[in-house]
């Protein structure tokens, strides 16, 4: 279990769930905690969330698969969400998206060989004023250019310890 959730967080969530009138409300909270720790939510993570909240794995899965920011498949250490919505599109997001694919050598939805980056499209990030924009993990990056992307990838790669 420790590779899904640190014991202290597990215990805190479990204690909160017992107190909770509607533990269901905590599904996203628990899934996000697992994802924070593990990087994604494997099947065992869904089952663990079910155990903590007194729900069946299916009941968790119904919610987990609704949201695009809960990863139910393995991802790299850093998930790159490239905005493909209108403001970014109008400022060249499509080309940057292709550039990212080229640079990383992967298609959307894939993870780089070294397991560092996963590339996913996302809808508007609320960075339209800084379009084109992307988000790596929970960190926002705007005013993207090819050069800036190279820099960002280098920094993120270094931070990810790859």
């Amino acid at each position: 279990m420790t590779d899904l959730l640190p014991q202290n967080i597990h215990d805190a969530l479990a204690a909160k769930a017992i107190e909770h009138l509607h533990p269901r409300e905590m599904i996203i909270e628990v899934l996000r905690a697992i994802q924070d720790h593990r990087g994604w939510v494997p099947d065992e993570g869904v089952e663990l969330a079910g155990q903590i909240l007194g729900l069946t794995p299916l009941q968790i899965e119904e919610i987990a698969t609704f949201y695009d920011k809960i990863y139910r498949q393995p991802v790299g250490k850093r998930v790159i969400h490239v905005c493909d919505s209108i403001a970014c599109w109008s400022r060249g997001a499509e080309n940057l998206y292709l550039y990212l694919q080229e640079t990383l050598g992967i298609s959307p939805g894939e993870t780089t060989q070294d397991g560092t980056f996963t590339l996913l499209p996302t809808c508007c990030l609320g960075l339209c004023g800084e379009a084109p924009a992307m988000m790596i993990g929970l960190k926002a990056y705007g005013r993207l250019t090819r050069e800036r992307i190279d820099e960002i990838l280098a920094t993120e790669r270094a931070e990810a310890g790859a």
Partner: peptide, 11 residues
């Protein structure tokens, strides 16, 4: 939730 493309005022 502010997810309508183009919108970032709440942010």
């Amino acid at each position: 939730d502010e997810m309508e493309p183009g919108t970032y005022k709440d942010r």
